[in-house]
Design a protein around this nucleic acid. Structure first.
Lengths: 146, 146
DNA sequence: ACCTCATCGTGAGTGTGACTCACGGATAGG
DNA sequence: CCTATCCGTGAGTCACACTCACGATGAGGT
């Protein structure tokens, strides 16, 4: 039996979710990349640009530009790194911390809107189905890499 | 109970699938937008650029550029429109048709890799869960538009 | 037949976001 | 202390999307 309908649904979800997120972020004056960096420094603490490059998969030079933009918006600061004088400690400002809190809240709200009115059994089943898809996908990506 | 884990899984799937698709398409010398246009003319038949703009959500001028690129790769042709001399009939070349067939085959292969070893009951459950998520998302997007 | 207005595609120019290359400043190991 | 390495940035490039203006064609009313 053909399995394409399920894949088409996943693709549809991907498109819809991507558009929705982009719109929501744009309303806060953020792009996906910028929000990714802001999210990182806001949730896992200050980081060097080098670390941010690794975690986001961006080129180090590109991180400089992203951080420039976030500094320009007053969301993060470049503070001297406590131990390494070459490096920079990208730190959220109060405004940046507030925005991260809003991002987290929006994330939880979206989760609730999507899954909130499922009873626990249905939610568990959905979660299991999604985890299964994600696991298979990760296997596939790993195989292709080899 | 928190519903964020399921959303996180959806997000993870989105990212993984997006990367995988981009890599696969790049291996065939295509971008997402170009493959979208090629897919349209390859599966639903020749179209005017105007129609392609509506279906892809691109600006008409951008469709011109995309079609330029596809023509440059020898995948589509600009043929005169049978009835409207202003318009252009974007038609796949034999090479383009072959590539579309490969895209379709890849699509089916991926679906099979992700869902192939589920028995029919498990597949049906997964499909239902995905359809539910997609439906909720569409409601949400529609609400936000209003 | 003609005039007007809408539509199709494209030239020209712009903006954004990513990349590479080359380089100055700082660190660490022999 | 000298050399190799690492951090961040200036300069330049590329891909892709957008808007604006325009010529060519089409459609409808008088």
């Amino acid at each position: 039996m053909a399995r394409t309908p399920a894949l088409d649904l996943v693709l549809l979800i991907t498109v819809l979710l991507g558009e929705d997120m982009r719109r929501g972020l744009a309303a806060m004056g953020l792009t996906e990349t910028r929000s990714h960096v802001l999210w990182l420094v806001g949730t896992t603490g200050p980081a060097t640009q080098q670390q941010l490059a690794v975690e986001t998969g961006l080129a180090p030079r590109s991180v400089t530009s992203v951080v420039d933009a976030l500094v320009g918006s007053g969301l993060v600061e470049r503070r001297p790194h406590p131990t390494d004088r070459r490096a920079v400690h990208v730190t959220p400002t109060p405004a940046g911390a507030d925005l991260v809190a809003a991002l987290v809240a929006g994330h939880e709200r979206l989760a609730d809107q999507l899954f909130g009115d499922l009873d626990d059994g249905a939610y568990a089943a959905t979660h299991a189905a999604l985890a299964d898809v994600a696991a298979r996908l990760q296997v596939l990506v790993a195989e292709e890499g080899s």
